[in-house]
Amino acid sequence: MYDFDYHKPAHRADADTLLGRDNYKPLAGGMSLLPALKLRLNRHDGLVDLGALSDLQGIRRDGDAMVIGAMTTHATVAASDLLQQALSALCVLAEGIGDPLVRNRGTLGGSIANADPGADYPAAVLGLGATVITNRREIAGDAFFTGLFETALHSGEMITAVRFPLPQKAGYAKYRQPASRFAITGVFVAQTVAGVRVAVTGAGPSVFRFAAAEAALTRRFDAAALEGLTLAPEGLNSDIHAGADYRAHCVVEMTRRAVIAAG
C-alpha cells in the first residue's frame, strides 16, 4: 500500500473541504477500499475517514421510506428491529454480506460507492428504486450504477444516506461464492405501488433490472408466473466460479427464490 495523508474530520463541512482536494477519497468501513489499496489497484493522495461523522449513521423512518445513513454498518442493518418490521429483506441481504467481522465494519455507503459487480446492496438500491443522497444532490437509484465499479458519483462527492421507499413486499435471494460470500448471482424483488421491480447483481458487469421477470410478476406476483422464463447469457459475467450460461440460469432461479422469500 502506498502511503497517503489521513484525515478524520469531526464535521461535515470539514469533510467537504478535504474531499475537494485533488485525488482525495472518502474512507467508509474500508472493507473494499483498504484491500484495493493494499493490492495497489488504487492510489490516493489522501483518505478522508468518515467514521467520526455521527450524522451519517443510523436508521430512521421518513414517511413511506426508510432512510439509512451511509456509514451504517451491515451488522447494524441486519440487527435493526425497525428494518426487521418494515423492510426485512434488507436485513436478510445485510446478514449475508461477507462474514460477521466484515459486517461489523463494512457500510452501506461504502458498498454502493464501490459498486463491486458481486456486491449485494446495489440490488436493493435498484430493486427498491431507492434514492442515493450525497453531500451535493440526490441521485435516483436507476441512474446511480453506471458500470463495472462505476457510479454516477463525481470526484469529491460523498454519499450521506440512502432513502429506500417501503415496498408492499420484497425478497432477496443469492447464490453466493462460498469463500468470499459475494453474489455469483443475487436478485432483489420488490412489489411496489408503481409495479414490480427485479434487480440482479453478480451476474453482469453492473447491477441491472430483469424486465421480462418484472412483466411476468406484474401480471401475477407468484413464483409460478416465472415458469418458462429465460435470460439470454450474452453480456453476463464468466469466471472460474460460473460461466455466463450458468449465471443466466441462476438469475431466473434466484428470482423465483426471491419471490418466495417475499411471501
Binding site: Y6, K8, L27, G30, M31, L34, P35, L47, D49, G51, P100, L101, V102, N104, R105
Partner: peptide
C-alpha cells in the same frame, strides 16, 4: 488478526492505526 475495537470484533489487517 481479529481484535476488539471499542468492544466489536474487527479484522485488524483491514483497519488503519490512525482510525
Amino acid at each position: 488478526c481479529t481484535v476488539h475495537l471499542n468492544g466489536t470484533g474487527v479484522k485488524s489487517c483491514t483497519v488503519l492505526a490512525l482510525a
